[in-house]
């Protein structure tokens, strides 16, 4: 990706256009198109030519998609907060803050998400009474926050020390330096891997179906359990996940391009 400011000491000529290679080469772009439109076409064909049971499945699943969206979006928002705090902790000179953050990252990354979900829902459920969806969002955010923290840390570290020195020498506080100088630059390095985490989070959100959260996967299971159409139900579930994931990864890609242009 072209990052003109990295070459500090050279004069960069900006061309009229066309010379800067785009992130998506043609192969990747067409693969995305084939997968995306192929999946949609398949759903349409299945529903059209074999309405029983596909049309019923199509009517049954949207509730689950909404729940999947809800869990994913809330987890993304919360995991960003956890990730930013822990990421700043990992680079902090404050021993306590740094220690707690590092411990959080190490422990959470060492325990499978499914075990964390069980732990928060069943083990902590004996102490505090939380709804299944709250548990799902909390454990997903804690888990992904730990991964995102490492991305934040690496992104912040990638900004040259001279930037901090320049900002501090102008009298900015550490907070102001982070807020106005470091983070705006780090976002460009941070966004692509964080976007990938979002896509992974969306897919992992299917794990919450075992906490009796009626997400997309669980709705599919419920349908199959009633009608015994396991093949048909899970085919549709898989296609829906594929479509949603492809849309999300496209959105992340568009966002990256936008940020790089700005």
């Amino acid at each position: 990706m072209p990052k003109p400011w990295k070459k500090k000491q050279s004069h960069i000529e900006v061309s009229e256009g066309g010379a800067i290679p785009t992130r998506n080469d043609w192969g990747l772009f067409s693969a995305w198109r084939i997968a995306f439109f192929g999946a949609i076409l398949m759903v349409v064909c299945l529903v059209f030519f074999k309405p029983d049971p596909y049309l019923d499945i199509l009517k049954f699943l949207p509730d689950g998609i909404l729940v999947t969206f809800k869990v994913t979006l809330m987890s993304i928002a919360l995991s960003l907060v956890f990730g930013l705090i822990a990421g700043l902790g990992r680079i902090s000179e404050n021993r306590l803050f740094n220690g707690i953050s590092s411990l959080y990252v190490e422990i959470i990354r060492g325990i499978p998400l499914l075990v964390q979900l069980f732990y928060i829902y069943y083990a902590l459920g004996q102490v505090v009474n939380l709804s299944a969806i709250t548990c799902a969002v909390v454990s997903m955010s804690i888990c992904y926050g730990a991964y995102i923290a490492e991305i934040f840390r690496a992104g912040i570290k990638s900004i040259p020390e001279g930037q901090t020195e320049a900002a501090r020498s102008l009298g900015m506080t550490p907070f102001q330096t982070m807020r106005y100088v470091i983070l705006p630059q780090a976002v460009k390095t941070i966004l692509p891997p964080v976007g990938n985490e979002f896509v992974a989070l969306l897919k992992d959100s299917s794990l919450v179906s075992i906490l009796a959260v009626s997400d997309l996967l669980r709705r599919g299971r419920e349908f199959a359990a009633q009608s015994f159409d396991y093949f048909e139900a899970f085919t549709m579930v898989a296609l829906f996940y594929l479509i949603i994931t492809l849309i999300l990864s496209k959105l992340v890609g568009i966002m990256e391009d936008k940020i790089n242009v700005d």
């Binding site: 500090k8 001279g162 501090r168 020498s169 102008l170 009298g171 100088v181 630059q185």
Partner: peptide, 20 residues
């Protein structure tokens, strides 16, 4: 220290302008 740094300007070898 922030108060003191306001009174002391610094120019670096590598300029360190904010690229964004």
């Amino acid at each position: 220290i922030n108060k003191i740094r306001e009174e002391v300007g610094m120019v670096f070898q590598s300029f360190n302008l904010f690229p964004h």
